[in-house]
């Protein structure tokens, strides 16, 4: 049985940790709360004191976004681009990750590292030239395709990275057993291997989606007025709605929503994804 002073010391330590939590939350979480709060305040109050917590809350900033700026449309665009690039990233990345593990390939790892280290700007100019060559600026369907392809630069390496450790956990003997039973490579892959990496697939889907949803640069340079996703329309807002901080904060809140939800439900996987698998 621990002595009384040891218990006391332990309690003191826990109390100190909570003090640290409060300080850290004040620094790192309060700006997020500030965004959420401002999204529900009237512009006249946002430009007033930040210490006045009695000002009324309103939905008008959001209503404005949807009625005057048709935000449903831009949310749809974001879904098309993030959804499309996630789906393609999976279709290409899942088999690739499997082969990387089974054949112990390091070469593809080099390419994905290249994609991770190269500045996004380097891809934007060639994609822009391609976009003009195929007439994508005036063709919405082509423009979406191009944006989805561009975002594949984010989602494909991410999918491979995330899935490799999951494939590594599957024992080889399991596949050999299926082989003896007369399964083809394809059958083995679909019927034996895939179900076993299902948890990894959900991780790859959610993270690819978020990273693609958040990505700014490619759409900034390549999207047209009809294909703009949320981050770009929010950026264009700065000039248009000068002084409309309520609208800007409501837009920021909408952009952040998927990430905020995920931070709560899938934090462990997020850490793995953000660190490229460096931390499991």
């Amino acid at each position: 049985m621990p002595s009384r002073s040891a218990v006391k010391q332990k309690r003191r330590k826990i109390a100190l940790v909570y003090v640290g939590y409060v300080v850290a939350a004040l620094i790192f979480f309060v700006p997020v709360l500030f965004m959420l709060w401002s999204a529900f305040r009237r512009n006249i109050d946002i430009t007033g004191s930040i210490f006045d917590f009695t000002t009324p809350l309103t939905l008008s900033n959001f209503v404005n976004l949807f009625e005057r700026f048709d935000f449903v449309y831009y949310i749809r665009n974001s879904f098309i681009i993030a959804g499309g690039s996630t789906l393609l990233g999976l279709i290409l990345g899942v088999p690739a990750a499997y082969v990387v593990v089974r054949r112990k390939l390091a070469g593809l790892g080099f390419f994905t590292l290249l994609a991770r280290m190269a500045p996004g700007v380097m891809f934007v100019v060639p994609l822009f030239v391609l976009s003009i060559a195929v007439g994508a600026p005036s063709n919405d369907a082509l423009n979406f395709l191009l944006l989805i392809a561009a975002h594949l630069i984010i989602t494909l390496p991410l999918c491979i990275w995330l899935l490799v450790p999951f494939f590594e956990e599957i024992p080889r003997s399991l596949e050999e057993a299926a082989m003896i039973d007369g399964c083809s490579v394809w059958q083995r892959f679909v019927q034996v291997v895939l179900p076993l990496v299902a948890p990894g697939l959900s991780v790859a889907i959610t993270l690819s989606f978020i990273f693609s949803w958040n990505y700014f640069l490619f759409a900034l340079a390549l999207a047209n007025a009809d294909t703009m996703p949320l981050p770009v329309i929010a950026f264009n807002f700065i000039g248009q709605g000068a002084g409309d901080y309520g609208g800007l904060m409501a837009a920021s809140t909408l952009i952040s929503l998927p990430a905020l939800i995920l931070a709560i439900v899938a934090q462990r996987w997020l850490i793995r994804g953000l660190t490229g698998g460096a931390v499991k």
């Binding site: 979480f29 952009i255 995920l262 931070a263």
Partner: peptide
């Protein structure tokens, strides 16, 4: 989970909040 939020919030949203 709270500490994860700044890193996964879209940089556009982060920049807009800090502009304010």
């Amino acid at each position: 989970g709270l500490m994860l939020i700044p890193a996964i919030t879209a940089s556009v949203a982060v920049a807009l909040v800090w502009l304010l």
